[in-house]
Structures are given as C-alpha cells and as structure tokens.
Amino acid sequence: MNKTKIIKILAIAFIVFVAIVYIKFFTSNTKIAKDEFVEIPTGSSYQDVERILSPIVKNMNDFEFIAKMRKYPENVKAGRFLLKKGMSAFQLVGAMRRNVPVKLAFNNQERLENLVERLSSQIEPDTTKLLATFKEDAFLKQNGFTAQTVFAMFLPNTYEVYWNISAEKFRDKMLEEYQRFWTKERLARAEALNMTPVQVTTLAAIVHKESVKKSERPTIAGVYLNRLNQGMPLQADPTVIYALKLRDNDFNQVIKRVLYNDLFINSPYNTYKVIGLPPGPIAMPDVDAIDAVLNSEKHEYLYFCASVEKFGYHVFAATYEQHQVNAKKYADWLNTQGTNR
C-alpha cells in the first residue's frame, strides 16, 4: 500500500472519528419539548439517575459514554437539575453537576401540619420528617418554643434553598430568619407591651384573621391589647373557628359564621372561655399583622364588629352598649343573607 493511500485511509478514519465524537458530544440528546427540572433523591446511585433520566435522554449509551469519561458515576449529586431542550450528552452531564436552588414560598397556613404539606411539595424531606424535626424536644427547649408555639418561627416569605436540603438544615435556616426578623427595635417594642415575640405573633395571628385591611389592623390590635390589659377575655371569633376545626380535625371546612353554641366549645383556643392568649398562633400572620401589634393604636375601644356600610372593614366601640347596637346591625344583615354557617 503506497503512502498516498495510507494517508487517505487515515484521513477518512479521522473524519469518521470526529463525526462520532461530534455526535456523542455535541448533537441533541434529549426527547423533551421544553426545558424540565429533574430531582435526584439523596443517596441515589448512577443507575437511579439513568432510570430517572430515561424519559428525557434520547440515547442513554451516549450519555453513559460521556458520563464515564467525566467520572460522573462516581460523583452523583442529589438535588434539582435543569435540563434544557436540545442539550447534547456532554451538556446533560454538565447540567447534572449544577444543583439549581428552589424559590420556596409559603403563607396563609393555619397550622404546622398544613405548612409541612406545603413544604414537602417543594423540597425533598417528607411531611413526617419535617414535622418530627420541627417538634424535636431538644430544639424546642433550646429555643424557647413548645409544640404549639414553634409555628411562630415561620415567617411567610420566599426563600431560596436547595431541593435536597435536610429537614434539620431547613429548620435551622428558618430559625436564623426568625432571629434576624426580631431586630432590637422589634424586641424593644414587644418588651414595651410586656410580651415575648411568640406572644406578639400569637396575637398577630388573630389580628391577621380578623381583617385583611392593613389600615385598621393597628386599631384591632389595640382593642385586643386593651382587653388583655384589663383581664378581659379576647372573645375572638377566629379562635373559636380554629377550635372547631381542631375538634373536627378538618381544616378544609369553611366556617363563615360563629354560632352562639360554638362559643361554649371546650378548647384552650376558645378565647370566649379562656382568658388570655391561646396556646399558640391560630394562623401564620404576615409581617404587616406582626408590626400592627408592635405598633398598635392607642385608644379606648374594647369592642368591634364587621361593618355593614363599609364591607371588609369594622366599626369600633368603647362601651358594650354601643357595641350591642353595632352587633345587631351586623346580625340583622347576616340574617338577610341567609348565612347560617
């Protein structure tokens, strides 16, 4: 074989090799029509990864070839990874090394059990693990919480965390956020009210439930603080509703009206029967409600009820006689609406 023919054969072989490498490295190796996130659980093996990626990867042999070349099977990472439409095998392996954070959001939860359900749909730890971690005796004792008050630690917001964050690390992050929220200024305001941060949050949860109108929340907070200072029961309907839901173990039910007989339910959350604050928050108050308590309005009001003239707002009274007049107007209006519950 002459030299020229050898050169031609080598050239063809090189071209074929380059073509094979190009196909394996740089051509699309996905079956997806749009970008997708995949989640690799903690402790997954390379075989687990291949199983998870099988609906996405077009040619698993090419993926495996690149993965082994880049030593990925020995360095599988747990987490949430973004795979884009049209990615090559080389790009896919690279993407599986980049854990993409989750923007985790929660608000308007009524109890810890509801919160962990929301969280488990966004991060890896399940509801059982999260609930057990949040209620761990040593953690509660060390940080001054109880199983009923630890809910006050969670502030509604959007947080950036990794999908595979452990329950313990997530709990510790929430504690850090809680401690950061309670600045020296807020702590001083709570102390001026003779309240702890947990007590402020517990009252704020009631204020939060009573009104969505930010402008009147400081007034409502002032009413409840006046009652506490005078040793009067709070008589907050939202606490009765919470007690009813807790009794029925049904927090999905909608209770629009508190009936007279409801006021006698035996529950530490029934502030018609129990003087003082309930054992813990009846909801997750937003920051505005917490600050409404800390910056409550100073007045002489002891009563309030829903307004029938300015819907969504309340009317306030300093005397029980005036409150009776306001309450009758509201009850009469409710009766015209046919609202029995």
Rank of each mutant, 00 (worst) to 15 (best):
residue 235 Q to F: 07
residue 38 V to H: 01
residue 341 R to N: 12
residue 32 I to D: 06
residue 3 K to V: 10
residue 4 T to F: 11
residue 93 V to T: 04
residue 293 V to K: 01
residue 134 F to W: 10
residue 127 T to S: 14
residue 284 M to W: 07
residue 6 I to P: 00
residue 62 D to I: 06
residue 225 L to Y: 07
residue 201 T to V: 15
residue 266 N to D: 15
residue 105 A to N: 07
residue 281 P to W: 12
residue 311 F to N: 09
residue 2 N to G: 06
residue 330 Y to W: 15
residue 27 T to G: 08
residue 214 K to C: 00
residue 26 F to C: 10
residue 69 M to K: 03
residue 292 A to N: 03
residue 277 L to V: 03
residue 136 E to N: 14
residue 10 L to Q: 00
residue 161 V to T: 12
residue 132 A to M: 05
residue 298 K to T: 11
residue 56 I to M: 06
residue 308 V to C: 09
residue 170 F to M: 13
residue 106 F to C: 09
residue 121 S to P: 01
residue 88 S to Q: 09
residue 327 A to S: 15
residue 126 D to C: 04
residue 251 F to D: 11
residue 316 F to V: 10
residue 340 N to R: 09
residue 255 I to S: 06
residue 205 A to T: 04
residue 111 R to F: 05
residue 238 P to H: 04
residue 6 I to D: 00
residue 142 Q to T: 10
residue 139 F to I: 08
residue 312 G to N: 04
residue 50 E to W: 05
residue 75 N to H: 15
residue 17 F to Q: 01
residue 338 G to C: 07
residue 65 F to N: 08
residue 161 V to W: 09
residue 295 N to R: 08
residue 65 F to K: 06
residue 306 A to R: 09
residue 142 Q to F: 05
residue 237 D to T: 07
residue 74 E to G: 04
residue 335 N to T: 10
residue 140 L to Y: 01
residue 24 K to V: 14
residue 156 P to A: 12
residue 58 K to Y: 05
residue 203 L to T: 05
residue 330 Y to V: 12
residue 230 Q to I: 07
residue 48 D to V: 03
residue 142 Q to E: 13
residue 279 P to D: 04
residue 328 K to G: 00
residue 149 T to S: 15
residue 94 G to H: 00
residue 210 E to V: 10
residue 274 V to S: 08
residue 263 L to V: 08
residue 272 Y to E: 06
residue 232 M to C: 09
residue 201 T to N: 11
residue 320 Y to Q: 11
residue 297 E to Y: 01
residue 50 E to I: 12
residue 188 A to Y: 07
residue 64 E to T: 14
residue 24 K to I: 13
residue 310 K to M: 05
residue 142 Q to S: 10
residue 105 A to M: 13
residue 239 T to H: 07
residue 175 L to T: 09
residue 112 L to K: 05
residue 74 E to R: 02
residue 256 K to T: 09
residue 140 L to F: 03
residue 317 A to N: 15
residue 116 V to R: 07
residue 161 V to L: 14
residue 56 I to K: 11
residue 286 D to Y: 05
residue 290 I to M: 15
residue 273 K to A: 06
residue 312 G to M: 11
residue 94 G to L: 01
residue 76 V to C: 02
residue 218 P to W: 08
residue 68 K to G: 10
residue 90 F to G: 00
residue 249 N to V: 08
residue 35 D to P: 01
residue 104 L to M: 15
residue 131 L to G: 01
residue 89 A to L: 08
residue 54 S to A: 14
residue 178 Y to A: 05
residue 275 I to W: 02
residue 114 N to P: 02
residue 154 F to H: 10
